[in-house]
Simulated scan of single mutants.
Amino acid sequence: MTLQTLIIRYTVFAVIATFMNLFFQRIILIIDNSFPYFVVAVAVGTLVGLVVKYYLDKRWIFFDHKKGIHHYSRQFSLYASMGIFTTAIFWGFETLFWLIWQSHFMREMGAIIGLAIGYGVKYHLDKRYVFSNDS
């Protein structure tokens, strides 16, 4: 795969995962936008985005076709672990923008900025530790 194709695919998949993340957050925040619901919305959105992005990366970025519950559980655990630091970046930006502006639009802008930075870092971690030939 060419570098240009990789960048386009990875960006499109990051946009899809970001959209799914924010979509599920909005659904929850429609019910109530108090702080407890905000925490639940961020957690649910993050989980949905993580699962979507894992599947897309596994299949279309790293071309990993290994199967089996042992392989999936080990690999997904590594994938999620690599996302802890990058999720902190995302949550930090999203929460900071929410606290400063108290606006869902700005919260989502913070989320988008945080996710963009986080996904850039995550690609390199995943390539080295999750989808390496050893895994």
Rank of each mutant, 00 (worst) to 15 (best):
I31S: 08
M109E: 02
R74M: 08
V121A: 14
L125W: 04
R26E: 04
Y129M: 11
L47D: 03
N133K: 07
M1T: 03
V42I: 15
L115M: 14
T86C: 09
L47C: 07
Y79S: 04
L99R: 10
I61R: 03
R128C: 01
W60I: 05
Q25G: 15
Q25R: 12
N33E: 14
L50I: 06
A116P: 00
E108D: 11
M109H: 04
T95I: 15
I113A: 15
W101L: 09
V15I: 13
I100Q: 13
M20S: 13
W91N: 11
L78W: 02
Y55M: 10
F24S: 14
V51E: 01
H71C: 11
L47W: 02
N133H: 08
I16D: 06
V51C: 09
H124P: 12
F62G: 03
V39F: 05
L96V: 13
V40A: 14
T11K: 01
D57R: 00
S81M: 07
K58N: 08
G92K: 11
D64T: 00
M106R: 07
M106L: 14
F63W: 02
R9F: 10
T5H: 12
A88F: 10
K66F: 02
M106W: 12
D134N: 13
F97V: 11
Q75M: 02
L47R: 01
W60F: 15
I89V: 15
K67Q: 11
I100Y: 13
V42R: 00
V44S: 12
F85W: 03
F85N: 02
A111K: 01
T46H: 10
R9T: 05
D134H: 13
G45P: 07
S81Q: 03
M1V: 00
G49M: 08
V40T: 09
V121N: 09
I7Q: 01
W91M: 11
F13Y: 14
F38K: 06
F23C: 14
V44F: 13
I27K: 05
I7M: 11
D57H: 04
Y37E: 07
Y54F: 15
W91A: 15
L47F: 10
G118Y: 04
S73K: 04
G92W: 09
K127C: 00
N133A: 13
G49A: 09
H70P: 04
I61T: 07
G118F: 07
I100G: 08
L6A: 08
G68S: 06
I69M: 13
L6G: 05
A111C: 00
Y123I: 13
Q75V: 05
M1Q: 11
S81D: 03
I113Y: 00
L6K: 09
K58M: 07
V40Q: 06
R128M: 02
W98N: 10
P36Y: 09
T11L: 09
I112Y: 08
F93Y: 14
I27V: 13
N21E: 08
G49V: 07
G92L: 11
W60H: 12
N133V: 00
M82S: 14
I112G: 09
W98E: 15
L6C: 04
T86M: 07
W91Y: 12
S73Q: 00
A14I: 08
N33Y: 12
S73I: 01
N133R: 08
I61E: 07
Q25E: 11
H71I: 05
S34M: 01
K122F: 02
G45F: 06
V48M: 12
A111M: 02
R74N: 12
E94P: 00
F23R: 05
Q75S: 08
